[in-house]
């Protein structure tokens, strides 16, 4: 469903992302070394990845690449160098239309 905006409340990120178009690749273009995440105190990726690709499950970080918007933020903010980052191949990934 597309997100109606008149409701004066914050939408869920899933609903907002639902308006975007991806051709999701079959292999991840980003890999995260979770061992390093365990040592990471601030875990800035959780709050700063605009697509919320990084989530906390208990106190473990879980990364899923499917909704990635390819901004590069996680690569830059990660203090532990845990993010092996690149762009998707063969035209896959996010397909912006109105930005």
């Amino acid at each position: 469903m597309s997100t109606k905006v008149e409701e004066k409340k914050i939408q869920r990120i899933e609903d907002i992302l639902n308006n975007d178009v991806w051709d999701v690749d079959y292999e991840p273009h980003i890999k995260v070394d979770y061992n390093k995440c365990r040592e990471c105190k601030w875990k800035p990726c959780i709050r700063l990845c605009p697509a919320e690709c990084y989530t906390l499950v208990g106190d473990e970080v879980l990364f899923s690449y499917e909704g990635c918007l390819e901004c590069g933020t996680c690569r830059v903010v990660c203090p532990e160098n845990a993010v092996e980052w690149s762009y998707p191949k063969s035209g896959r990934g996010i397909h912006y239309r109105f930005s």
């Binding site: 997100t3 975007d20 605009p50 918007l69 590069g72 830059v76 930005s99």
Partner: peptide, 17 residues
């Protein structure tokens, strides 16, 4: 600004450095 957006719907969400 919400007063301006009553009729709207989100078309796209995007981000960049």
């Amino acid at each position: 600004i919400n007063k301006y957006l009553k009729e709207g719907r989100i078309m796209e969400y995007s981000t960049h450095l």
